[in-house]
């Protein structure tokens, strides 16, 4: 996993395809958080998806096309900030795997060195380790799998635990996947369901007021299960908590 090195407050924002299609409020919260930090934000209109679905399905020809489009769309030197650990892992690691013997590997690596997950950008990139404002409640934070090998999760913990009124509760078996895995969730429905059930149990075990995630992909899955099962604990992306805290200053 390539660790990002691009610094500065002039940034490009990757909204992610899931926020583009389903979670406009998360993209908006992330944008407003970045705006609050004084970032000069460009949102390339031509952006689509990072290409991970095709890479994970073994369709590497298709994946490379989408990655090339993303590299072109996000060209430049600025940090690229992404409200998803999974899409960031794709641009930083997965994409490179698919380009190992391609002539334009350099360009893909270039985007990798500029790609930050949102919380990681705030804490590691901008050097901010506390968050203003207030957010009342107990929060269970899901550690999304694709943040392994990065400082994303610890950055989110740093920020959330600094917010007045917010208490992070323990989540059991943090290293266990929620069972989404993209197409895995539909091609292995039974195993995926069993994994999701365990995740919902672990996330709600300590009776939190909110369940939070660094990835809407995971929350699409375990959240969809919570809705089906009637588990009413409200769910928020970490950016939404940061934004709500700002509103309570």
């Amino acid at each position: 996993m390539i660790q990002p090195t691009a610094k500065g407050k002039r940034i490009k924002f990757m909204m992610t395809c899931l926020c583009d299609a389903f979670y406009a409020d998360v993209a908006q919260a992330s944008y407003e958080v970045l705006e609050h930090l004084g970032c000069e934000i460009e949102v390339p209109a031509g952006q689509t998806c990072c290409g991970q679905p095709a890479l994970n399905s073994g369709e590497w020809e298709s994946a490379r096309k989408v990655v090339r489009h993303t590299v072109k769309t996000f060209g430049g030197e600025e940090p690229v900030v992404i409200p998803s650990g999974s899409c960031a892992a794709m641009t930083r690691h997965g994409a490179i795997l698919g380009f190992e013997s391609e002539p334009d590997l350099d360009e893909v690596e270039g985007l990798a060195r500029r790609s930050w997950e949102l919380c990681e950008y705030i804490v590691q990139g901008l050097g901010i380790d506390s968050w203003p404002g207030r957010f009342d409640g107990k929060v269970a934070l899901h550690r999304s799998c694709h943040t392994r090998g990065t400082k994303v999760y610890e950055s989110a913990v740093t920020l959330l635990s600094s917010i007045e009124g917010l208490e992070l509760v323990e989540v059991g078996e943090l290293e266990q996947c929620c069972g989404f895995g993209g197409t895995f969730s539909v091609s292995f429905p039974y195993v995926s369901k069993k994994m999701g059930q365990l995740k919902v149990e672990h996330l709600t075990e300590k009776r939190p007021n909110y369940v939070a995630s660094l990835d809407m992909a995971c929350m699409l899955h375990f959240g969809g299960m919570m809705d089906r099962q009637g588990v009413k604990t409200p769910r928020l992306h970490v950016s939404q908590i940061l934004k709500k805290a700002l509103e309570n200053r």
Binding site: D20, A21, F22, Y23, A24, D25, S185, V186, S187, P189, K193, G196, L220, H221, G223, G224, M225, D227, R228
Partner: peptide, 13 residues
């Protein structure tokens, strides 16, 4: 397969 155990979120494209 998805809907067998999960709800879909509203589309906000």
């Amino acid at each position: 397969s998805w809907r067998s155990t999960r709800e879909l979120p509203p589309f906000r494209g």
